[in-house]
Amino acid sequence: MPLLAKIVLGCVGTACAAGVYAFHDGVMSVTVDENRVGGQHVHLMIPAAMIPVAARFVPDRHLRHAAENAAPLLPALTVASKELGRLADAELVRIDQANQHVRLATEGGYLVVDVREPGKNVHVRCPLTVVHQLAGELQELQPAN
């Protein structure tokens, strides 16, 4: 019985520690709502610390393909994500047209993208540290010139 108690407590402690570690970098959230019959409703919350870890399980060829496609943007994205983290929260881009709205902003260390149009709302919120880390890792996959 004492051994079982220790095991349970150890498991609970480990689970708590893992939970705290998983969420200490924040959470990436993706929300897609289609307001029509049979429309999709996607609500994802992914611990930011898990994203770079998950990226390591993506087959190498897919990562290289992604890195090649994003190659021209990666240096700018790496620098921008780092610098934006240092600046005050701001609305970087806002486009309003009748019922359509697009917004790109930084909020508390997160990059926020909002797209609203009739029948569809998309909301993405990603920690800038994750954007920086992923851009840096993809950049490392680039063949050296």
Binding site: A80, L87, A90, E91, L92, R94, Q97
Partner: peptide, 15 residues
């Protein structure tokens, strides 16, 4: 439509 873009000079200088 209305388009608003706000860019910190510091960021532009580095990017």
């Amino acid at each position: 439509e209305t388009v608003r873009v706000n860019v910190p000079l510091d960021l532009a200088e580095k990017v």
